[in-house]
Design a binder for these strands. Structure first.
Length: 632
RNA sequence: GGGCAUGUGGCGCAACUUGGAUAGCGCAUCGGGCUUCGGACCCGAGGGUUGCGGGUUCAAAUCCCGUCAUGCCCGCCA
């Protein structure tokens, strides 16, 4: 099922192809080349354009202008593509407004809420992991970027017919948790605020103490006891982590971010995933136990074998990568290899699951692995998407390389590292250890951010004359705030670093979610005033589409599905924010110039355009995890 | 030392994967627009050697080589 813009492009492509095959078959132009040569036309030069003449020109050493001319004049037109002319070597075509309107509106009528979705994923199962924050501190704005990216990519993939499972990985066995546990056991202050906040602050304190006193051996000992699982320390650490994760998930829920399952590191150890993975690697001769020298008693993988997979491996400072340390504990990479084998169903784990929350606001339960509980089936995916900072590129590459070495080439290529740039603050970093996230005055936690932005939104909402029912103010302000925050992160391409600024976070003007939400609310009012009910447009209605704004808006609405596909295949939500901003901007211009209710003959068509804009805006924002409001 | 990412008007971004027509958008600045469907809006103006230097091409922000700057990574940390 293709979207309107794609259908028309296909039609244009086949016309061009026909002409090229007939006139210039000796140039050896492929169908793909033709498809890629097509783009929107320059304003004033028709609607759709191909630059294929230049490619032919190169092959045949003839002037592109001449080639374009003969292509344009040799084409049989269709109802949709009604004229073609050459211009500076381009072949420009016009689309028939009436036909296009019919195409778009019948797609909307047919597909309704599914209008922006597509069938790319073909039902394939994808396990997406985010944000995997250590269970010892509150989410800060860096973690929030991860969570928002992950949530959106999950939504976009689901809209692209993937069977999406959202998973969060909880590393409750790390040294960081041992440090927190040490603080919990040895320091006198007791929790007096949101638990993740308190624990995170305490973690900063423990690090200060570590710089002054020799407590590291105690912490290492704690970490070891934690890994033994059935110890008192292990139980305390888990309960500490669980309290913290519950607090973190309050934040997640406040932002409307949900998961299907949490997988805990300690349960991975309990399920003996690692042992199975190591055994398999040894058996295949990829891993080896070192008996002497620097790595005596370690299990390692030699990266010599993966040279050529990526340039990163060409000159590593060290060829040997330790998987299991001489003391018998596993490194991060080893755990990740084992975990990914589970994700793909290569090895099974006897995980037990508990229901953490019967019903999240999205209507679905949240499961968690546990020491005991029922069986359930998670994982066994075809694609594993990992939303992880760009700093982890190297270990992610090793993971892929090792999986391929063991013989799982397909699975390896189906690990997608959605790599994103870190979030910084002006003149500092968000270090957990040093407490950069605590800030001065305002902290940089996701909770504080939401509070601040919500307060600002409430100010504006309260002064709005459009909101007569003031009891809704809080709800509206919250939706606006969440939208503004998510959009602000999503509009920037993932690979870019972002420097957080309060000033920008608190600005709801043009390049923002509120701008798009405003489009929705305004549209809604028009339809309300007109007493609009969706109906089948008549031929006469289709005929009222005017060039310029009516048609521009129509064309943009026709690009919705294609936009979602692009965002999906590139793992770049900013494709959608761009689209939404352009759509809203175009709608604003349409709104200024084109009377709708007083549109005379064009009234029904314009009402349908308004309704379509509204629908697409709502659907696209919802992919970004942003709710629209009726008044604002 | 090696690898990766980033570098686009004063500021924040888009276009780079797939080379195409006049490099788009927002903020800020300056000037306009509400007795007409919602001003969280719209219209107009000024502001660009796309870090720098080469190369390929009819055509380069986009591809190649080199170079500079910034950040990250190259651990028996995670």
């Amino acid at each position: 099922m293709m979207g309107p813009s794609q259908q028309v492009r296909g039609e244009f492509a086949s016309l061009i192809t026909e002409a090229v095959k007939r006139l210039y078959s000796e140039a050896g132009i492929s169908d793909d080349q033709i498809l890629l040569s097509i783009s929107k036309a320059k304003p004033g030069s028709g609607d759709i354009s191909s630059s294929i003449s230049f490619g032919i020109s190169k092959q045949l050493k003839r002037a592109p202008q001449e080639i374009a001319k003969s292509i344009a004049s040799g084409v049989k037109f269709t109802k949709m593509i009604t004229s073609m002319k050459d211009e500076n070597g381009y072949v420009n075509a016009s689309i028939n407004e009436r036909e296009y309107a019919r195409l778009v509106f019948s797609a909307i009528a047919e597909r309704g809420e599914m209008y922006t979705s597509n069938s790319m994923g073909k039902g394939r199962k994808v396990l997406i992991e985010f944000p995997a924050v250590n269970p010892g501190k509150p989410w800060h704005i860096g973690h929030l970027r991860n969570a928002i990216l992950g949530d959106t990519i999950a939504n976009v993939m689901a809209a692209s017919s993937y069977n999406v499972e959202r998973e969060d990985y909880i590393d409750d066995l790390g040294l960081q948790i041992a440090e927190s546990l040490w603080g919990y056991m040895n320091l006198s202050d007791k929790p007096d605020k949101k638990f993740d906040q308190w624990l995170g602050e305490q973690y900063v304190n423990v690090n200060k103490i570590m710089a002054e006193r020799e407590i590291k051996p105690q912490i290492d000992a704690l970490a070891k006891r934690m890994e033994e699982l059935d110890t008192k320390e292990a139980r305390e650490a888990r309960s500490l982590s669980e309290r913290c994760v519950k607090a973190q998930y309050e934040t997640a829920f406040n932002y409307g971010i949900y998961h299907d399952v949490m997988i805990w590191e300690s349960d991975i150890v309990r399920a003996k995933l690692l042992a199975k993975a190591m055994a398999m690697g040894m058996e295949k001769g990829v891993f080896e136990k070192v008996t002497a020298g620097k790595y005596a008693n370690c299990i390692v993988v030699n990266l010599e074998k993966v040279k050529g997979v990526a340039k990163d491996f060409e000159n590593p400072s060290e060829d040997t990568k330790v998987l299991v340390r001489s003391n018998g504990t596993a490194t991060y990479v080893a755990k990740d290899i084992a975990f990914h084998m589970w994700k793909f169903g290569i090895i099974k784990a006897d995980f037990h699951y508990n229901v953490m929350l019967e019903r999240q606001e999205n209507g679905k339960p949240l499961y968690t692995t546990a020491a005991s509980g029922s069986d359930a089936v998670f994982g066994e995916a075809e694609v594993a998407v990992n939303v992880i900072g760009s700093a982890q590129r190297y270990p992610q590459l090793i993971l892929k390389a090792v999986l391929e070495l063991i013989g799982y080439k397909k699975e390896s290529s189906n690990i997608v590292h959605v790599s994103y740039g870190e979030v910084g603050i002006e003149g500092g970093s968000l270090s957990g250890r040093k407490g950069g996230w605590l800030g001065e005055g305002k902290s940089f936690t996701a909770d504080t951010l939401l509070e601040e932005v919500k307060a600002k939104a409430l100010e504006i909402v309260n002064s709005s004359e459009k909101i007569t029912d003031k009891s809704k103010s809080g709800e509206i302000a919250k939706a606006v705030a969440i939208g503004a925050i998510k959009f602000e992160f999503l509009r920037i391409a993932p690979e870019k670093r972002v420097t957080f600024s309060w000033e920008r976070a608190l600005n709801f003007e043009s390049s923002s979610a509120p701008y798009c939400m405003y489009t929705y609310a305004r549209s809604k009012r028009i339809l309300e005033k007109a007493g609009y009910v969706a109906k089948q447009l008549s031929e006469a209605d289709y005929g009222t589409v005017e060039r310029d704004l009516d048609f521009e808006l129509l064309k943009m609405i026709g690009e919705a599905q294609e936009t979602v596909e692009k965002a999906c295949s590139e793992y770049r939500p900013n494709v959608i924010t761009d689209y939404l901003l352009n759509l809203s901007s175009l709608f604003s211009r349409f709104y200024e110039k084109m009377p709708v209710i007083k549109g005379g003959n064009a009234k029904d068509l314009r009402l349908a355009l308004v309704s379509a804009t509204m629908g697409v805006t709502k659907q696209a924002l919802s992919l970004l995890g942003i709710d629209v409001v009726d008044y604002m």
